[in-house]
Design a binder for these strands. Structure first.
Lengths: 148, 148
DNA sequence: GAAAGTTGATATTTATAAATACCAAGTATT
DNA sequence: AATACTTGGTATTTATAAATATCAACTTTC
């Protein structure tokens, strides 16, 4: 029994239910995923299951695109600024070998990292991914860390 | 004699020359400025003069828009992440009153700040503005500050 | 085991951001 | 004082990102 209690990250809804709840099409959801904006849980059969946190995150993405007029590429670049290397306490050696540290086109969870901490874990359960659900969270994070 | 030597931030070119050097229209330049992406020097007569650093910055903006497909709104949000409050050593009181600290839609230099350090100075000569000419500089800055 | 829902992929539509063109009034240059 | 350039504004064009539609093969559900 790894996870008994239901929480915000519990995989619940199949794609059609998620789409309905959000008022968007199933294809749009898959497109966001392909772009690396979201990482829904996948069952063994490869079917997606969306959590409440996923829905919240998708609403943020949606607002960013449709109201704030930030392009998907722009959102990806912003998410690429999350200091995952610091949160995951990567060694200098790991950093120098990690495309998520080196590059800046997309968030760490949009890579398929095979030779560091991230290889062992599922991004949909990772602290990095789950600490930045809300859109404002990146600037808030910077404010905290550059307090003085 | 405040500034005798010519450097990267020396105001040199009128708008038409800048446009020609960059291969874009005069109006596009004004548009970038209106959006708050650039702050060229202005003469007393209100005419713009572009420095070499301005040209470099505009090339970065251009690449971001046309090659990387980041929208102008997206660029603004990225630049809004620059921790100006830390660079300028703003007090807690100043921070709490500053829209550039509170909000996240646009870079600090796109505001007309009247009641803090920024009121006294010209953004085109400010350290914050001049430390982030290159597009990669924000992530680089984060890497430096979250080294360990 | 039949019906409903899912998978990924490509092709098409639509909404709009980015750039351009045009304007009259003001400034610079000779 | 005449010519060339700049100012800020709106109105228009164009390039394309975001979303939709359609597809055959595969999975879930009852």
């Amino acid at each position: 029994m790894k996870e008994q209690l239901e929480n915000k990250s519990t995989p619940l809804f199949p794609i059609s239910t998620a789409a309905e709840l959000l008022g968007i099409s199933v294809h749009t959801l898959r497109m966001y995923e392909k772009e690396g904006l979201i990482v829904p849980f996948k069952k063994d059969s490869n079917q997606r299951r969306y959590s409440r946190a996923d829905l919240e995150r998708i609403q943020c993405v949606r607002r960013a695109i449709n109201e704030d007029k930030i392009s998907i590429e722009g959102i990806k670049r912003m998410l690429a600024l999350i200091p995952c290397w610091s949160i995951m306490k990567c060694s200098d050696k790991e950093r120098e070998a990690c495309p998520a540290y080196i590059n800046m086109e997309k968030p760490c969870w949009a890579y398929n990292l095979e030779d560091n901490v991230c290889a062992k874990m599922n991004c949909s359960e990772c602290e990095v991914y789950n600490s930045f659900v809300e859109c404002n969270s990146i600037k808030d994070y910077m404010k905290q860390n550059w307090g003085k």
